[in-house]
Design a protein around this nucleic acid. Structure first.
Lengths: 223, 223
DNA sequence: CGAAATCTTACGAATTCCTTACGTGCCGGG
DNA sequence: CCCGGCACGTAAGGAATTCGTAAGATTTCG
């Protein structure tokens, strides 16, 4: 039940230190000793990312930027730079916290803990909206107790919407979360899946159209 | 945005500074110039608390401890002390972030923003002005409980105005904020959208003209 | 009163969206 | 190996909606 933490840190000593502390604290750390470009597939399923900004070769900022296109995972940034401009930039890019080296590992662990005790939206395993029930873990969906069989993409799409029930999400952000731009189709493709999804979910406008924007997960009442 | 932030800070200068910055960033700060014991009743309905730990009389840590008994509101702690033990203690007590003085206000604002872009439990992103209600997340608008269907630009426009209710915004800044200079029209176009918007919102001058300047979001009462 | 700013309306072009149909590739069974 | 089913992407038709522009009416200000 330990939450998983991805540590991206090229410094051997510091990395080992961090990993050890996190493990001692009951987490399940994974250590990448180098920066890699991140995409939907290459990002492991983790609950939080500890990212060193000062990596050789790849710029940490770019990794962060990439990441935020398709994921909302909390990111704790480490950096040797202590100037405000850098901090502001990282936080604007979507970082959740910023620690300046050197620091004591205890503090890092506490900051990780502080982030993780807040609900991470995507991680709620069961989302219920009206008569619709989505179980992420089992990959099961039911309407009014009736199981509904969904294909992979249909499910992914619904699950993405369920990350923020009731909130409008743009096509592009949905596409980024669900589709692999290489293999899979374009935003147009989403329409088709929505269409099929609606047919399967039956009466009740669970997937609502937000004109000019994208879609929204509704409770299926009226409209 | 209009999210409410409670600032507990006894230092006049610093407090004023923080409050100003937060307001500039679109938040609604409330400033307590002294520490008070907090209880369910005395804690105002805010979205985040900025708490200085070094208050005369009351210990900031105690305030934090009290607070966590009955509230999950995010807390950003300020302190002049830079030792790890203190940070760890505050974070363990439930603080969400810890900043060491001195710091640049920009960083504070960004950290506040970083906390608030995560969904807090409870209320979403809602602006209410008079009988007008704007839900940013869902992209829905209602007047006196009645749903009003808006187009994309109408909503964008209203939402832009709603960022600073009661404050006049120039045409050009609105246009820049809402229109894509490539695809969309000119400032003249705004007039048309205002017109349509007013018709849809019905009685009550929610969108007021500020002659020679632009527009302002009113509560629809006067006139 | 006159000029400038703003408002309203009408209309057609463009965008956005939904559905259906069809082709491809994958996989398991026979 | 071949067949059929399934998942999926693409394309195309068509309907609904949105939006910009122009043009004339109205308001504001000096």
């Amino acid at each position: 039940m330990g939450k998983r933490v991805l540590v991206i840190e090229d410094d051997q000593e510091l990395g080992a230190q961090i990993v050890k502390r996190l493990r001692d604290a009951g987490y399940e750390p994974t250590w990448w000793k180098e920066g890699r470009r991140l995409s939907r597939e290459t990002l492991p399923d983790v609950d939080l990312v500890v990212l060193d900004l000062m990596l050789p070769g790849t710029y940490g900022m770019d990794i962060l930027k990439d990441l935020r296109v398709f994921s909302e995972v909390p990111v704790l940034v480490l950096s040797a730079r202590n100037d405000t401009a850098d901090k502001v930039r990282a936080l604007r890019l979507g970082a959740d916290d910023y620690m300046t080296k050197p620091f004591w590992p205890e503090e890092l662990v506490e900051r990780v803990r502080a982030r993780l005790r807040r609900p991470t939206l995507g991680r709620g395993d069961v989302v219920e909206v009206g008569a619709l029930r989505i179980e992420r873990g089992r990959r099961e969906v039911s309407v009014r107790g009736e199981r509904v069989e969904l294909t992979r993409l249909e499910f992914e799409f619904l699950a993405a919407l369920a990350e923020r029930p009731g909130e409008a999400m743009t096509r592009s952000s949905l596409a980024a979360r669900v589709l692999d731009p290489e293999r899979d189709g374009t935003e147009r493709t989403l329409d088709v899946h929505v269409s099929r999804l609606r047919k399967k979910l039956g009466r009740g406008a669970f997937v609502e159209t937000v004109w000019g924007i994208g879609y929204r997960l509704g409770d299926g009442r009226d409209e």
